[in-house]
């Protein structure tokens, strides 16, 4: 069972990331200590988008090749993806109030991230509403794949439209516009969240597999092995 090991890694990276974020990274000249929300907000937002893409990928594979495990993997990822989306929105709101002066605006970045949360909820609700697992997987896959277009919208929203949310501080094509220690804290937390996501996805996939296949011989044999 790999999940606990990823859990340990997650805890280690998050501890290191938080240490860097609070005790090594300096304060910000503009936002003061309020900016330290960044060490959760940005990694959570990255995870919210990344997990959706992975979920949609597995859902798509399951749809195309009729493989059972792919669909189960997609279902295993959804709750954690929704969690990080909510965290991104929640921490973003708490960060917006003291800096922008508002808890919320309907600009393109915030609105598209909220839509992402609805996509995750819709995926989970749809699968819960359909009894037959293969049909549930297929329906969920169609929704997940349709929603993939939202991911580039979220990412490029600050470039394509006028938004209150500022542009990217970190990109693949240019140097980060933040102090090195701040950037390091953010990246370490991102790895911590990533390992956490792997751990929860694996643990949840295990539950899903056992639940769905409980009528089979191999699961009966598995249950026979004493814990």
């Amino acid at each position: 069972m790999l999940a606990p090991w990823f859990g340990v890694l997650a805890a280690a990276f998050c501890a290191a990331g938080l240490y860097i974020g609070f005790f090594i990274a300096p304060t910000d000249h503009q936002q003061g200590e309020a900016y330290r929300i960044i060490f959760i907000h940005v990694p959570a937002a990255w995870m919210s988008m990344f997990l959706y893409l992975v979920m949609a990928f597995w859902a798509g594979v399951g749809l195309m090749f009729n493989t059972r495990l792919s669909g189960m993997m997609a279902s295993a990822l959804a709750p954690t993806g929704a969690l990080f989306t909510f965290i991104a929105l929640w921490t973003g709101s708490l960060w917006g109030k003291p800096t922008w002066g508002t808890w919320w605006v309907w600009d393109a970045r915030l609105t598209s991230e909220l839509i992402l949360l609805f996509l995750y909820f819709g995926f989970m609700a749809l699968q819960a509403a359909i009894d037959e697992p293969r049909r549930a997987d297929r329906a969920g896959a169609v929704l997940a794949l349709t929603g993939v277009v939202n991911i580039p919208i979220i990412y490029f929203s600050v470039r394509w439209w006028n938004t209150l949310h500022q542009g990217a501080s970190v990109s693949l094509t240019s140097a980060p516009t933040m102090a090195a220690t701040m950037f390091a804290g953010m990246v370490v937390m991102a790895f911590g969240f990533w390992f956490y996501s792997i751990a929860t996805a694996l643990a949840r996939a295990r539950c899903i597999i056992l639940e769905r296949e409980r009528a089979t011989d191999w699961v009966a044999d598995y249950a026979r092995v004493p814990k």
Binding site: G32, E33, A34, W95, P98
Partner: peptide, 16 residues
């Protein structure tokens, strides 16, 4: 105290 931003910073971390 987080420079006066305690509600926002700790509110974020605690919920997370």
């Amino acid at each position: 105290a987080m420079g006066g931003y305690a509600l926002y910073v700790w509110g974020s971390y605690a919920v997370t």
